[in-house]
Amino acid sequence: MTGLTFELRSVPPGIVDGSVLQPAALAGKSRAEIERLPLAAWNETLVVADLFALKGRDAQHVTIHGACDRFERLGAGLDGGTLTVVGGVGRYAGEGMRRGTLIIDGPAASHVGAGMRGGLIDVTGDAGDFAGSARPGAMAGMAGGTLRIRGDAGDRAGDRMRRGTLIVEGAVGGWCVSRMIAGTALVLGAVGPHPGHQMRRGTLLLDAPGCELLPTFNPNGRHDLLAIRLLLDSLAAHGPGVADYGRRAIGGLDRWLGDLAAGGQGEIFVARS
């Protein structure tokens, strides 16, 4: 059985909530029923057939071709199966997802993986601000699962992150893992200013020798901690860059503790070149 495919026919006039285009909401529905599913927009409700042509059947494997940043909340609440989006996605892709896989073959706008609790999000392009964070006003960001961004991420990646793993293979903007509550973030590229601002707990691993850390992070020396080794081993499957970082970590990483303005139980590791 071939996966269910949505092919974009016309770009919507504004932002559309695309959260209905995912396995759980589509399973067991006829093509006609799917075509009539509502897509909430500003002051009107579109239906799937207004924007997409459908192919295939298997709702456990959904593909959306030609999506763009007008589609928000794609894969939000995903609870199993696979959703592949070819083209870019709007804000809040994979928000609150619990299980399954969301592949974004292209760039993601802000808040990808906001509040996600499980599963895997794999973004092949760049991500906007607040990757793995939370909605404005909500207290806890990403709380489980793995968010992998193969390109760069914007500001505030991992803001208020509470659990789970965030991997950015490119560079991150400013305020990386601001207000982090716990969890693990690994950044293989350059890092912008103020990493770890108001971080309470959690682990940020950087590969940016000589990067400037806040004065409310204190140097803790070079350590080769078993927990970090285990952690990096467990992440090695996420690509050669991560595996290479893990190999270089053997023998120790420079460790900083902070943010002392917020209790100071977070840790930032920096690999030496």
Partner: peptide, 21 residues
């Protein structure tokens, strides 16, 4: 420090030779 690694939850307890995991 609590740490979840590959789905399992660990404790890292600071001790004089580093960390007890």
């Amino acid at each position: 420090i609590a740490k979840r690694i590959a789905g399992r939850r660990y404790w890292r307890v600071p001790v004089m030779d580093g960390e007890f995991l």
